[in-house]
Design a protein around this nucleic acid. Sequence first.
DNA 1: ATAAGGTTTCCCATCATGGGAAGGTCAAGG
DNA 2: CCTTGACCTTCCCATGATGGGAAACCTTAT
Lengths: 136, 136
Amino acid sequence: MNIGEAATRSGVSAKMIRYYESIGLITPPARTAAQYRVYAADDVHTLRFVRRSRDLGFSLEETRELLALWRDKSRASADVKNLAMAHVRELEEKAAELKAMADTLRHLATHCHGDHRPDCPILADFAATPSAQAKA
Amino acid sequence: MNIGEAATRSGVSAKMIRYYESIGLITPPARTAAQYRVYAADDVHTLRFVRRSRDLGFSLEETRELLALWRDKSRASADVKNLAMAHVRELEEKAAELKAMADTLRHLATHCHGDHRPDCPILADFAATPSAQAKA
DNA sequence: ATAAGGTTTCCCATCATGGGAAGGTCAAGG
DNA sequence: CCTTGACCTTCCCATGATGGGAAACCTTAT
């Protein structure tokens, strides 16, 4: 199948498939006489794997490791679990950070009248010295 | 004061100060005969404002709007509040997304032995067809 | 034969930040 | 007066993952 079909089937854009190939994440497929890339069903599996990994927030470098583990039939499941749990912690940290920002801002907003008057504690906080600021 | 001192006092790197100037976020300061940028105390306030805005997850474009509102003494606080609350919702959405990813992954990991054996439901899920996957 | 649509490579843009080079400047101390 | 070191200047490049688009080529169906 051509790259377009592989893209549709895997949910990875053709643009990204070429990019993944260029950085060595996936192996270059065969080519037709006219240089068209030709993919097999198995390549679509790999692409779906990558897609899934990306959807779960793994970077391409992490995805590369996961792919290697996936292909290594003799790897220990502990290796996979460690990588996954480390990632879980990162995700949870980032989520907590965003939540903290939202909480700070929401708190500031509750003290803002939100009417036609100009004075607003949100901007006042932004302009204040760091020591006097609401904690993020 | 020179850019270095402004950077230290505001918590914005000299590199970023120059960048903010280049994109018109902040106004170009005066220069010495030798082309050194000269900042006033007020410029440091502005930089701190930007820093604070960034720390709370606003993009530079959003920061630009906030700065404009800050400087516009006649703006309605409702405008600020609307902008802030829209951002709060964005932050909370992103946080929820990350949390969902973490939950999915954590769930998959609980079913992974995490020992020397090779079989691992995490990778199995990654390789599965989308319809059969744990929900993110 | 021609048109439509797929494919190729290549370059550019995003967003916010950092790194580093090559060169100019300033202040302190010998 | 000159050197040294710490600043400053501009300019270019890199990141990470993705998209946009151009110019050229291929394929397939009419």
